[in-house]
Simulated assay, not measured.
Amino acid sequence: MSSVPDGKKLVRSPSGLRMMPEMGAYSSPFSLDEPQWVPDKECPRCMQCDTKFDFITRKHHCRRCGKCFCDKCCSKKVPLPRMCFVDPVRQCAECALISQKETEFYDRQLKVLMNGATFLVTLGCSEKSETMVCRLSNNHRYLFLDGESHFEVELAKISTVQVLTEGLTPGEKDIHTYTSLLESQYITEGGNNRAIGLLLQYKAVGSQDLQKMKLTASDDYNSNKKLAGSWLVAMHKAAKLLYESRDQ
């Protein structure tokens, strides 16, 4: 194990080399823990095709789910950024497909979130709004909001994310909600519905009461509307990963 800049360290695990935060408590809320491998003695056959393992047919563990597979069913080596692996790692076909989709989020949407966008921000039931730049922190743990005032929201304290879209009658399906209990719906770039705002429910530091916040892409900032829309779509995808992490 060796230390590297920016508060991270290289850790060698049975699954491969990982780039981990120096302080485990400050890991990204999108990250996943390595799974416990199914013990060799408990898997005499491939858990996908039921082929019996022997000296010729060797067993391999999927780095994402920890199950045992033959080489045919676990041959793909795919990046797994949610577990902080430095290099692509061996995964079963089902896990590889999931990881490939997540890699696009890490390569594209995270950069959009960290670059930030400008919104009109309304707190609680207030009628007053403030123009603020909202961006995701470099460690993915906080939403920073900067304007005349400044405050931050910890992602782990967010209980509900609602993306407001344009193009539907209010009260029908104009609010797309992600929680650990509700069925998820998707907003697609270039689709019929355009993301125009975001509603958050969260707990502030030192409080157990739920706070509300609304972010709206203002019509006064036409040059920012496309950027704001991309940021909202990225936040929608981030919410999906966030709540999936809580359920695992």
Rank of each mutant, 00 (worst) to 15 (best):
D54M: 03
D54N: 14
D54F: 08
D54L: 09
D54T: 03
D54E: 13
F55L: 15
F55I: 13
F55R: 15
I56A: 09
T57L: 11
T57N: 13
R58F: 08
R58Q: 12
K59A: 12
K59H: 09
H60V: 04
H60Q: 09
H60F: 15
H61T: 05
H61C: 04
H61F: 08
H61K: 11
C62V: 15
R63H: 06
R64E: 00
C65W: 13
C65N: 02
C65A: 01
G66Y: 12
G66T: 11
G66H: 13
K67N: 11
K67Q: 09
K67P: 02
K67E: 09
C68Q: 05
C68P: 08
F69T: 04
C70W: 08
C70Q: 06
K72G: 02
K72D: 06
C73T: 05
C74H: 11
S75Q: 12
S75A: 07
K76P: 00
K76G: 01
K76A: 05
K77W: 02
V78M: 06
P79R: 00
L80Y: 06
L80S: 02
P81V: 04
R82H: 06
M83R: 02
C84V: 03
F85W: 00
V86L: 13
V86H: 01
V86Y: 05
D87A: 09
D87L: 13
P88S: 04
P88L: 07
V89Q: 06
V89K: 08
R90P: 00
R90L: 12
R90C: 04
Q91V: 10
C92W: 07
C92Y: 08
C92A: 01
A93R: 11
E94Q: 12
A96T: 02
A96Y: 11
A96Q: 01
L97I: 04
L97G: 03
I98K: 12
I98M: 06
I98P: 04
S99F: 07
Q100H: 08
K101E: 10
K101S: 13
K101M: 07
E102I: 07
E102K: 00
E102N: 08
E102G: 04
T103W: 03
T103H: 02
E104F: 14
E104S: 10
E104C: 10
F105I: 11
Y106W: 15
Y106V: 05
Y106Q: 03
D107P: 00
D107A: 14
R108S: 14
R108Y: 13
Q109T: 11
Q109H: 14
K111L: 15
K111E: 15
V112Y: 06
V112E: 14
L113V: 14
N115T: 14
N115E: 14
N115D: 15
G116N: 10
G116K: 01
G116Q: 04
